[in-house]
Design a binder for these strands. Structure first.
Lengths: 231, 231
DNA sequence: TGTATCCGATACATGAGCGTATCGGATAGG
DNA sequence: CCTATCCGATACGCTCATGTATCGGATACA
């Protein structure tokens, strides 16, 4: 019975972090494995042993790093959300750079393409969609996790909304509805396309999703936009 | 070791149904219990014993009526889908009756209200949403169940699309996009509102969903419609 | 009312997953 | 190189869910 965690190991520092590089690595590997297992079997269907196995460990490693499957799941969603926001920002930066360079405003008709570009760049669509669905379902059932899910969803929505907003301003059009509402609408459409694609058993899901989105999004965006000069 | 099912009990009738009223009742009770249990704990989280208990039986009754939890789940979704389609049709019939009676066409501006009415009348929103989400997630993961889910979803979409189509014709407007696409869009919006409502922990979900839908749907429908006389 | 059949209850065996206590190799610090 | 500590592996006991085989009461029918 060791008293490792019971007494703070630091004398004067208030940083509780006592993480070895080794520990961090195994945590990452466990998270990676959890990503695979959760997306394939769901949070209830994936056993702790299966996750540890997939990561190349035994359950001992798991219990040394996490206290429960839920904790692991939430850490996973946080990590992935961070990563998504990061790639989203990067991708957007690459997109708006040429807009400023060319000097003149691009054709407003291209706004749909820009929006589609911003949203379509989602690597690993399938796994992400599955884990996200699992997260949502968990949140729908359990009032305790609902705030977590809503926080993640909202932060993503806000981020994307400001991006769409600046892109739209740069192009010189406005929407007839609140940008955040529109963003939610677009996200819903995107999610729906993702799910349909997966359900159809389509290979190359990324391309298929983009095609699906582009089938209705242009008219939708067009119908909801107006130029800054009037109607 | 009885040979009940091994030999067809009928001499000349080709109807394989040998269902007692008793048997049918216990099946219904089991399905009801499964509805509650699946919506609360998910298909993986609900044990067979819990379902049987909830129905007031033991597992013996379950195994006497179903061969697996999946079979039970699919029968449940089929039963509920039938019920949904039924109430949808009924509700629509009540809605269009006054349209024909009054002789004149109602104001096209009311088309959004009609659509919202048609879609909003969904009893037991919460449980249905949860089971539906579970079904979708299962289908996303398992290519074997994807067709089942798609079949149910598409039949619902088609039904609703024809309803919207006739309602729209009666009112005298047209959509600028394919009716089926629009229907899907509306269903997505409706589902999204349902989920948000549940996530917010709102009581009286039915009212809340309708409010949410009405916040964006009118403008959306308006932007996508055009009168039959031109633009 | 008597009897054959149906159907849900009960008992049992089995396996999977979980959490903990403990061990031993790896690693960092001197 | 030596030692204290860390951390993942192993072994154990336990609970819960499953599937089956069998039993006994209910039900239909004469």
């Amino acid at each position: 019975m060791s008293a490792n965690k019971l007494v703070a190991p630091e004398g004067h520092s208030d940083a509780p972090a006592r993480e070895t590089a080794r520990r961090a690595r195994t945590r990452e590997r466990l998270l990676d494995a959890a990503y695979r297992q959760f997306s394939e079997h769901g949070i209830n269907g994936a056993s702790i042993e299966a996750i540890a196995d997939d990561a190349g460990f035994t359950r001992g490693a798991f219990y040394s790093n996490f206290s429960s499957k839920e904790e692991l799941f939430f850490e996973l969603t946080e990590r992935e959300n961070r990563a998504r926001l990061e790639t989203l920002r990067e991708h957007f930066a690459h997109l708006v750079a040429p807009l400023g360079e060319s000097g003149g405003k691009p054709a407003p008709a291209h706004i749909e393409g820009i929006i589609a570009d911003v949203m379509s760049f989602q690597p690993d669509i399938r796994q992400w969609c599955l884990v996200q669905s699992e997260f949502r379902l968990l949140a729908l059932r359990d009032p305790e996790v609902a705030p977590r899910f809503l926080a993640a969803a909202h932060s993503f929505q806000r981020e994307l909304a400001t991006m769409i907003d600046t892109a739209v301003r740069a192009v010189g059009v406005r929407f007839r509805i609140d940008t955040l509402d529109l963003t939610r609408l677009l996200i819903d459409q995107f999610d729906s396309a993702m799910q349909e694609t997966i359900l159809a058993g389509d290979d190359d899901p990324d391309r298929s999703v983009r095609e699906k989105v582009m089938r209705t999004l242009p008219l939708l965006v067009h119908s909801l936009t107006t130029t800054l000069d009037g109607d």
